[in-house]
């Protein structure tokens, strides 16, 4: 960073700048982290205020369901990474296959989530319900945070499915290929982020009793 150091010699005629694209993506992921950061802050604050009630409420959540979803999501991170490597090495079929598996995993995650939520809702546990308003404040907040945070995360999973499906089509059509795979790599980064956030949500809601 000294005065004489030259600016990166970007070939400005080509509109393509892979490093730039990746940098933009990282910056975007950074904003996503901060978005969830606000929520983690709230979680920390309320857990500190109502430690006992948080504990009781957390016992209601099914650890096995959460574990299953964690395994699903972690594996899907692996498959997306394989897809990227496969494409870089020119194995289009393997890339498509793994991308497909990733999408299936993502959908499985959502289905699982759906079961989980609907079970809770049928027990009358959802924001604003009569049952929940009879519970102590800490439990109300726990479930409030639970729905908001996993909901927001679920939304990201759905967006991820859409993005990955587009990538599938692009690879199929060949516009994303061995020499031009930045889009896929950035989508992969996004998917890892979705995964990473879940890895924090999982212990906070399902494991710490």
């Amino acid at each position: 960073m000294n005065q004489s150091s030259h600016a990166p010699a970007v070939e400005q005629h080509a509109h393509r700048d892979d490093i730039g694209a990746k940098m933009g993506m990282w910056l975007f992921l950074f904003t996503e982290l901060l978005l969830f950061g606000g929520m983690f802050l709230m979680y920390a604050y309320y857990r500190f205020q109502y430690p006992d009630q948080f504990k009781i409420a957390a016992m209601e959540l099914s650890t096995s369901m959460g574990t299953l979803n964690t395994i699903i999501l972690l594996t899907s991170s692996l498959t997306v990474a394989i897809a990227i490597t496969a494409l870089r090495k020119g194995n289009r079929f393997l890339a498509l296959l793994n991308l497909f598996v990733t999408i299936v995993f993502a959908l499985a995650f959502m289905v699982n989530k759906l079961f989980e939520w609907s079970a809770k809702i049928s027990h009358g546990i959802y924001p604003g319900s009569e049952d929940i308003l009879n519970k102590p404040n800490g439990e109300i907040l726990f479930y409030g945070l639970y729905y908001v945070m996993t909901g927001l995360h679920g939304l990201h999973v759905i967006i991820g499915v859409v993005i990955l499906s587009f990538m599938f089509v692009f690879i199929y059509k060949g516009s994303v290929n061995k020499d031009n795979f930045m889009k896929l790599e950035n989508s992969g980064l996004y998917w890892h982020l979705v995964d990473l956030i879940w890895i924090f949500l999982f212990p906070l809601f399902y494991l710490i009793h």
Binding site: M1, N2, Q3, S4, S5, H6, A7, P8, A9, V10, Q12, D17, I19, G20, M23, G24, L27, F28, T31
Partner: peptide
């Protein structure tokens, strides 16, 4: 914002170091 940051990092003309 992210567009501008990337632009500043990646698109400066030759010779334009940070302190120019």
């Amino acid at each position: 914002g992210l567009n501008f940051i990337t632009t500043v990092h990646r698109m400066r003309a030759p010779g334009m170091g940070w302190f120019r």
